[in-house]
Amino acid sequence: MARKDYLSYSARDFALDEDFQQWVLQPSTRNVFWEHWLQQHPEKENDIREAKQLLQGISFTSYQLSEGQKEELWAAISGGLEDEAPITATATRSHWRQLWKYAAVLLSGMLLAGGWSWWREDHTPAIVSAHTRLGETKTLLLPDSSEVTLNADSRLLYATSGKQREVWLDGEAFFHVKHTVSHQRFVVHTYDNINVEVLGTQFNVNSAGKEVVVVLQQGKIQLNIEGRNTSMALQPGEMVRYNKQDGDFTKSSVNASQYVSWHTGRLVMDDYSLADAAAFMQQVFGKTIIVPDTQLLKYKVSGSMPIIYNADTMLVQLEKVFRMKFNQKGDEVWIQKK
């Protein structure tokens, strides 16, 4: 089992971990590691319990729904999940929406390697989930002809029919939204209470780290924060950073190309710091970057370079750009002065 910083994991992180999934979903397989780890870290008991509930609760076959309830559920999903169907089943009504959100990311990894879909009895596709692995990107054409490019280790849930144009994102994606004659809105939901509403535009949403970062390249978008009476409009070249932990947010003007150029295969570096490079390698390739001399993280460069979706090649390129020594040990990369 690869070394992971499980002490920093939330319930959601545990639920998405393949080793943890195997331990929970295959109880006949005794896993000494997890039993020992729990004994050593009793403070994580609540997170473990919640993660188990999420995994054990996401099983469509366990919900005994009548034909009428199935139709109500389908209508709610086709309508964009804005109104929950009044489901009476094993899970409570309030818990169903939470389970559905986690199903989007969990089932994509557990059921099919390339994605999954839920079909009605008449074989009409309802909800589709697409995802990317570490070190890869994927471009999707949505039913309304809008185009989405997923960055590495990201997931997108969307409906293939219905009046609403809404998607759910976990990770990072660049959106090129098609404007409709009827001025129909397009909404991007993240699992961190951020909703981005547009008509037709180009923008980037990144929810992969400790913040949700929204950058507008072209057009106009409206950003709403669920649970708070807060909304703001963004103009081209503006960025909003939303802190997932404390809910604070900042708005600033930026070089949008630096944040959206990845979808064209280039890394634009405008005062690009070593800390930025470390975050990139962790998000795209799952590498843990260790810099003993933290002052090096402030070192900045400017320019551009192609993105090669091979971790070893990118490390060599970044080593040359920053003129530092990158020493890779498994999934860890140690950086120091040459």
Rank of each mutant, 00 (worst) to 15 (best):
G219F: 06
S94K: 15
N310H: 10
Q202C: 08
S161W: 00
L296V: 09
E197K: 12
S94H: 12
D153I: 05
V268A: 06
L142S: 05
V187N: 04
H179A: 13
R3Q: 12
I58S: 03
K251R: 14
L234E: 05
L111V: 15
S252M: 14
T180Q: 13
N255C: 11
S207T: 14
P86Q: 11
L16I: 04
L274M: 11
V198C: 02
T92A: 12
L25H: 08
D144S: 08
P236V: 06
W116N: 04
L216C: 00
Q217S: 13
T160A: 07
L296P: 03
S78R: 15
L223Q: 01
S207W: 00
L234K: 05
K220F: 00
G227I: 11
M269E: 05
F203C: 05
T61I: 09
T29N: 09
D246E: 06
S257T: 11
H36F: 02
K338E: 11
L99D: 04
T190Q: 05
R185W: 00
Y102T: 01
Y272L: 10
R133Y: 10
K329M: 11
P86G: 10
Y272M: 07
L55R: 04
F186H: 02
P292E: 08
E332Q: 14
T137Q: 15
Y191I: 07
F326C: 07
G237N: 07
L142I: 07
P143N: 09
L106V: 15
A233Q: 12
T313W: 00
Q328K: 15
Q40V: 12
S302M: 06
F326T: 04
E82C: 03
V212Y: 03
A159Q: 11
V301T: 14
E45M: 10
L297E: 09
Q235I: 09
V321A: 14
T124C: 01
S28A: 09
K178Q: 14
R12E: 15
G162C: 08
E45V: 10
K337Q: 13
K337V: 11
M314N: 08
A130S: 12
A275S: 13
K4A: 12
A208C: 07
E332M: 10
K329H: 14
A2H: 13
V240A: 09
R266H: 13
K52E: 15
P42T: 12
K300Y: 03
W34A: 06
E136F: 05
L81F: 13
S108W: 02
V213A: 07
N310V: 04
M232S: 08
G286I: 02
F174C: 10
T250G: 10
K70A: 02
L296Y: 07
A15H: 03
N31R: 08
L65A: 07
